[in-house]
Simulated assay, not measured.
Amino acid sequence: MLKPSTERDYRRRIARVVEAILLEPGAHHTLESLAAVAHLSPFHFHRVYRALTGESVVETVQRLRLAQAAQRLTDAAASVTTVAHDAGYNRPQTFARAFRGFTGVSPSEFKARQKRLAAPCTGRTADAALAAQGYIVAGANHPGNTAAAPMTRDGFMLWWERATDASEVLDGVLADPMLGPHVDRERIGAAGFSLGGYTVLELAGARTNLQAFERFCTSPQADAICHPPEAARISDASGVAPLTLDDLSPETRASRARSGASYRDPGVKAVSAIAPALGEAFDSASFADVTIPVSLLAGEADVTAPVATNIHRIAGLLPKAHVEMMPGASHYTFLDTCLADVVAHLAGICQDGPGVDRDAVHALAADRAIRFFAATLPAR
């Protein structure tokens, strides 16, 4: 086992190596050339690098090349051939195979998908504002429940599993040789919108009462949270949603059995939930283990995650939380501002009530998030 001072030294050396790769991702990096950057012998460098990163330096080179290529492909003007060449791939076919292995889709499919995702919106959201303040911002991909891929039944309905996605992202960032050394582990926060708001409450230690939520949704009091619009995108191999628990797979049943477990991530020190959903999945015992600061923010005109059964219910169960309501704002007001030519096609997401300035709401929400995290995660 390495002494802390020795490990810090090695991690600094590894960070220099990663920076060298990022400066010239398409260059012919060899074990010998990168060992020289770290001022270590190739043999010793190989052993230290794998021990501290969990992968070989060759694997890091390929991963960083492909990550940068993916970032460049979000630029509509960048051609796949040019991006492949700049990433060090002389043959587009070789690049396409490697890229598919890295992202799950071909470069052309990735580029087309990014174009579709980018088209409706413009503006600046809270994550960008936090990044501008110097925060390292990372987002989780929730399999089966993301705009970039088809919605699946399990991905959408097994919401308690989402916290594990976020924890895996955090673990990956902390282990990353480039990002990890720059993270202050005592100043890690989590923020989420809608179902993401529920997810960050899980990270804080909240426990789900699935049976209570299902009882609510079969009662006369059931409201819009029981029939979210995103449910229309759910699909699976059969194309038909199950009607009874008997139709569920063994894996789904096992997940339901652990829905009330704690998904607390001790690395997270404060959470901000924006328009949090699934308030009826929490009961009087759900927040017994929540000891970190919590901020709750929502729009007063939210009818998608109705305020009475969601943010106000959560606030009532979590009296120490900081709560703020935005007059006139609805659920989707917190999503990015839509471009003018798509507003009519995405009216449910893009249109706000009279007098609501979505950009102004975003600015206020970003300001509140920055102030909250600055107060609860102060610089040391």
Rank of each mutant, 00 (worst) to 15 (best):
G239Q: 02
A277Y: 04
P378Q: 04
Y198M: 10
H362F: 01
A126S: 07
A119V: 06
N209W: 03
L66R: 02
D171T: 11
Q221K: 12
T30P: 02
R185C: 08
Q133S: 11
S262D: 11
V307P: 01
E214C: 03
S33R: 13
L22Y: 04
H182E: 13
S238W: 03
P92S: 04
A77I: 00
A222W: 06
A298W: 03
G172L: 04
W160K: 00
S295P: 00
H362G: 03
L117G: 09
I314T: 07
H44S: 13
V290Y: 01
F282W: 05
A273I: 07
A20H: 06
L317F: 05
R253V: 14
P266I: 11
A360D: 15
P4I: 09
P150N: 08
G180W: 03
A98N: 00
H331F: 09
N310I: 05
R187V: 02
L318N: 02
T125N: 10
A98C: 04
L318R: 01
V105D: 01
F156H: 13
D341P: 02
G316L: 02
V307L: 09
S255A: 15
L296W: 05
F99A: 00
A241Q: 10
H85P: 00
R185E: 14
D265W: 02
R47S: 10
T146G: 07
R313H: 15
A360M: 10
H345L: 13
R97Y: 00
D176S: 15
L210H: 08
G180A: 11
N90M: 07
S330G: 15
R100M: 09
S284F: 04
P293T: 05
D154E: 15
E324N: 03
P4W: 09
A38H: 01
L243S: 10
Q68H: 13
S330H: 13
N145W: 04
R50S: 11
G101L: 01
T6S: 14
P181N: 09
A329I: 07
G260H: 08
A149F: 07
T125R: 14
A131G: 14
R185K: 14
P220W: 02
M151R: 10
P143C: 05
R16W: 05
P250C: 01
V342I: 08
D283G: 14
I234F: 05
N141V: 11
P266G: 10
L248N: 00
A222K: 06
I188N: 00
L73G: 01
I188G: 01
E161Q: 13
I136P: 00
R313V: 01
V240A: 10
V17W: 08
D184N: 12
P120W: 08
A148P: 04
V290M: 04
M151G: 00
Y10I: 08
V323Q: 12
A301R: 14
E202F: 05
D357P: 04
R371C: 03
A166R: 05
Q351K: 13
D236S: 07
A27W: 04
R97S: 02
M1H: 12
I349N: 08
D184F: 01
D283M: 07
V294F: 02
L40N: 07
R12C: 03
T252F: 08
V37C: 05
L22N: 15
R8F: 06
H46R: 15
